[in-house]
Every structure is written in structure tokens, then in C-alpha cells.
Design a protein around this nucleic acid. Sequence first.
DNA 1: TAGTATTATGTAAGCGCTTTCATTTATAGC
DNA 2: GCTATAAATGAAAGCGCTTACATAATACTA
Lengths: 335, 335
Amino acid sequence: MATIYQVSELAGVSLATVSRVMNNNVRVSEATRNKVLQAMEQLGYRPNSIAQSLASSRSNSIGILVSELHGPFYGEMLTGIEAEFRAAGKHVIIAAGHSERATEEDGIDFLRSRNCDALILHVEAVSDQFLVDLSKKETPFVLLNRQVPALADRCISLDNELGGYLATRHLLEQGHRNIAYIAGPMWKADARDRFHGHQRALTEYQLSADDALFFEGDFRETGGSKGLDALLASSRPFSAIVCANDEMASGALTAARELGYEVPADFSVMGFDNVNFAYYTYPKLSTINYPVSAMGQMAARWVLKQVYQQSSIDVQQIFNPHLIPRDSVAAATVT
Amino acid sequence: MATIYQVSELAGVSLATVSRVMNNNVRVSEATRNKVLQAMEQLGYRPNSIAQSLASSRSNSIGILVSELHGPFYGEMLTGIEAEFRAAGKHVIIAAGHSERATEEDGIDFLRSRNCDALILHVEAVSDQFLVDLSKKETPFVLLNRQVPALADRCISLDNELGGYLATRHLLEQGHRNIAYIAGPMWKADARDRFHGHQRALTEYQLSADDALFFEGDFRETGGSKGLDALLASSRPFSAIVCANDEMASGALTAARELGYEVPADFSVMGFDNVNFAYYTYPKLSTINYPVSAMGQMAARWVLKQVYQQSSIDVQQIFNPHLIPRDSVAAATVT
DNA sequence: TAGTATTATGTAAGCGCTTTCATTTATAGC
DNA sequence: GCTATAAATGAAAGCGCTTACATAATACTA
């Protein structure tokens, strides 16, 4: 592999000049620039990014920590992030945190040790305090889908409360009054926020959440099927179920079918997230859109702006969800 | 950030000694090792991986190029790869190729310029020749889900032909004789291989593929729905459809329902890949298992063995698919 | 045309490590 | 106790770049 030195020799200039044309910041005369470019071409020169990083103390790499690499959700997020950075010539290092405190902390450590210029974190299990402490260290980071009051300027998140509200309001508008709720793990902030939105919608209709119609699931399909079982076992009547995400809604749909119920004839089901398979369930799932790819992209832009000084970039920190009505919700039959 | 120099000073030894204890390869006396370790601890020292890379000309990073970051398939693959490398202290840089020749070549270039020690490529659009040429350059790579004869020792792939065979044989065993086929894009090798397997199974039953019952799809849901339309339009009778992947099978299922058909009562549907949503379709999709996570992991092991000299590792290059019978296939009604 | 301001290029000191080679110190053999 | 050998440590030269700072070349002013 050719080095900058050989290029400088061939072009008959100094190292510094070659470096300058590479980083075309300082003025170099057209004549020498061409000589250098030509020498590079001729040698098939490619700068050594490691050496560049060491000398400039900038690695041009961004660490991304997500809970999982698979699943319908994170893939979209990574897509948004990668596309943005790739266009900017930065590269993306990934790690999975598996929603466990130790693994998440470990992942952050791993990424930091890789000299990332910045981190994009989708963490669920580490404490706010841990993040606040982390913010005092040198590596800057943004948080995706998490609100830490002390770190508000680095949070990019969805208004989950609004989403929960919209889901339930949709059902209320369709005439439903006995609405069950299958929540996510309540230690997760987004699960709580969505539930709060649900409560707010109920309150607007002078209703309140019925404990017997509440089930705390795990954000996975099994949570939905178990939730449905539990709800049915409570023998409390309901005509609709709000699920805190699409996976659980899908689980509920499958379980309902296996138990001989028909959705939405027997009861309606709402999802949340609008992951791509929501369109392929039967019936097609009514849900709340989570613009996850756009949010991933925005996190990338935050980094470009804050860390790489691309000041012209605008960053939006709060995203609003919206309703996607499909076939799993029907009007309540008059009682 | 503390440097190795400060550690050496605090410990009262030379740089070289500190470096030795970090890479604990050369013998260092217990006494000095402890002094150094203690100094590191005290300073909260973390080696600068960039500097390590430059000095050792080894970046400990592996570039991964996949077609997409989202979708049920690649996520699984990345999970398998990341887990394996993370445990080995290597990190993973990702890029998307979007199944387009230019983007794939560009992505490879990008990864190479990042000084990756090795590449794991899931490429579909670049030519065999391009890969052969690439193999002559310094960066080693493995190919996932692709067979290039000249590069057989670096290919990790599924026996797609066998998978296609198993899918169709399953249908034949259930008594089906008029079997339609919705293929993937036939310029992709895996699509072709699966189809060849299909043909082989037919041949074993003294049947042959009927052109009127063949449709070339795009591996996406729309391919499945369009395929079903086309098949129906041909007015050739069939009692089963083999789809070359689960997405298309899911599309066919949805389209069938919308057209008033019932699966598997009116006709059976086979998928391929066993992506996770195959379990959540209605009816649950009978399919062929593609051990994609295991294969990703194996690609990582190939790298560990070939590039990082972990010679004790065993690598399996060809994986066998197997049948997952579920609810979308039923026995043919006697004619 | 000298004097000054600009612009273009070169010199050389790092960036924080690894690694070869030389040197010192410990261990063993007699 | 003295040499031969092995084990532990140190000195120093890079790895391939970036970036002050210094210097040379050119343009501009009066």
C-alpha cells in the first residue's frame, strides 16, 4: 500500500502538501494540487484512516448501541443511522445491549474503548444517573427513545404519551367503553408513558382504567397471548384491547384466533409502533406510527451537528406519533 | 486520558514493559506486572485502540456488508456475527449494499478504507469476477450465502437447492400434483438454486414444471400478491404454491384472503427462510428453515480462525435447510 | 523599487502505541 | 566464586498521518 510519503515523492512536494490536498482546507495552488492528485491516482493511493485518526484524534466512527440487532424495530433504526453517516463518510460500529444493565454498560465501555467520536444509545436498563455520569466523560452521546431530564438536549424521542392517548382515543371514538390494556414492562419508561396516555384518553371520556383489564406483558408475542388469556380469565367484559406494541398485538391476534374469537367482530385490537409486519397480520393491524427510521436519522444528524460541527443541520428532538387505522379495529356494537 | 507513558512513569518501568503486560505475551516478572497493573488501575488507564492499531497494523475491526439493515433476515445475521466478535473483543463496522452493484462495490471500498482486518460480505449484485479480483487484494473476506467456485474456501452458504427440493417434496408427499412456483429474482443465485431444487423434486415424481404456473417475483410481499394474481389469471389449476421466500408467501396469503380464498383449504402455500414473522401469519406458514443466525456466527468464526489465527475453531461451510411444517399446507383433496 | 502583506510550500514534532535489538539482572553449573 | 545461559527490562525506531511554525515566493502599495 502506498503511503503519503511515496505520493509526495512522486509529486515532488512535501508530506504536508499532500496532506493538504487530501483535506482540501488550506489553499494549495491548482498546479501542485493537480500534480498531487495525479500522483495519488498513479499509485492507487488510499489514505490510512487509522493513521489519520491517530494524528487528528478523530476516529470518524460512531458507536451505536441498540437492544437487539434483529427484530423489526432496530433494523429500521440502524438503516436510518447508517444511511446518514455513510453519506457523511463516517462509519458505524454496532453493539447489542440486550436490555440488561450489565450488558448495556459493558457495550458502552466497549464502544468508548474503540475511540468513537460519539455514541448513539438506545438503552433501557442503565440508570439515569449512569447516563448523567457518562455525560461528564469525554465521549459525547445522544439518547434515542429515552428522556433524561438532566440531559434533555441529547434526547431524541417519541411522544409516547401522545401515542398511547391516540390509540385509546381512536377506540373511544369508535364507541368502545370497556377497553383492556396489555402493557409493556412497566420498568421501561416508554411502556409507562404509553399507559399514561391511555389513562388520559379514558379520563377525557370520564372513564378510568380498570385494574382487572390491565396486564403487564413483555413487549413480545408471548406477552400478547398470555395477556389475552389473563384478560379473558378475568371474566370482565371488554370490546377492545390496546397493546403497547405490535408484537404483543400480533400475539393477541393469534391467540384470539386459536381460541375461536374473531377480530374485530368479537373485539378490536390496537397495536403500537407500526413495524412492518403489522401490515401482514390478519386482520391488518390498526396501530400507531413510530417514525423510527427518521428518528435514527435524526440522531445521526445530531451527531453531525454537535460533534462534527455541521452547523447548518437542523435537529428535531421530539417526534409525534400518529394513528394508522387498518382492519383490527371496528366500531363497537351498540349496547 | 492517561497514556501508556504516564503509566510507565507511575510504575517506574519503561513503556515497553507496560506494553508487554497489556499484551501479556512476553514474560514479565510477577512483581513488575503487579506494579504496572496497579498503576493502570490508579490512573484509570485505557489503551488507545487507534494507536494500537497503527503500531500493530491490526485494527481489530471487521466490516460487514449486508443488503439491508432492516428486514427479518439481516437482523438475525448481524446478531450472530456481533455476538461472536464481541466475545472476542473485535468490533463490527456495518454498511448496507441495497442489492445494487454500484452500492455494493462502494460499500466494500468504504469498509476497506476503514482498515478492516477482514470483511464479511453478503453481496448479491457484484460479479464473481469482481470478487475474484478482490480476493487478490490484501483484505481477506468471507462470502455469506453465495457460492463462487473459485473462492469455495471462503463461502458459507445454505444448500438452497436442497431447500427448494424439500419444500416441493413436502407438497408432493401431501398428494399435490399441480404445484405453482413463485420465484425470487432469477438473476440471484439463491433464487435459481431454490427453483432447481423444486424441479428436481418434480422430476422424482415424473412431473415437470409448468411454465404457466411459474412467476418471477422480487422476494418481497408484493411479489407474492402479484404472483398469486398472475397464477390465478393463467386459469391453469393448481392446489399448492411454493414461494421462494417467506415475504412472498406472506404476500400470497394476504392476497388470497382478500380474493376470498382460504388457505390451505383452497390451496396450500409453502414459504422459505423461516423468518420470525412466519409464525405470526394466518395460517402459520409452513416453510424451510434457514439457520441464518448460525451462519452469521460461522462467518465470524471463519474470520477468527483465518485472520486471527484461532486455529482451534471449526468452521462449517455448507448448511442444510430443513422442513418446518405448520398450517399453510394441507393434504391434497383426492381428485 | 523597496517595503509590506499574502499566499504557497516545507520542516519537524508529535499522536500513543508495538516491537526489535541491546542491555542488565537473575539462575544454574561446575 | 566465576562463567555460560536464560529471563526481564529498557532504548529507540517506527506505524502513516496532521498541524503548528518557519520560510520562500508572489502580489500589492506608495
